[in-house]
């Protein structure tokens, strides 16, 4: 009986937990995207940081490049993503 209540609360708060960081995670992804874009600036025609600096950071940028790529793929559904965040279905 206690266990069941415990599980219930765990799931209950768990969902709150997930919801609570949704916006921060969105912001985080945005920043990661911008960071990666800045480093690859020469590809999209904006001034890029010192090439040697970019070269040194690139090996550690797996996640950011991945996020940037996903962002580019999902770009046609920006409204969808915003709607999801705002709870509009």
């Amino acid at each position: 009986m206690f266990k069941k209540i415990k599980y219930f609360f765990k799931g209950f708060f768990g969902s709150f937990k997930l919801r609570s960081t949704e916006f921060i995670e969105f912001e985080e992804r945005e920043l990661e995207n911008i960071f990666a874009l800045l480093l690859m600036g020469s590809f999209i025609g904006i001034p890029s940081p010192p090439t040697t600096l970019v070269m040194r950071i690139m090996p550690h940028m797996v996640r950011e490049i991945y996020v940037m790529q996903r962002r580019a793929v999902d770009l046609d559904d920006m409204i969808g993503e915003m709607a999801g965040l705002m709870d509009i279905e």
Partner: peptide
């Protein structure tokens, strides 16, 4: 970015 990550 790190700040946001830490918060999450």
């Amino acid at each position: 970015i790190l700040d946001k990550r830490l918060t999450v």
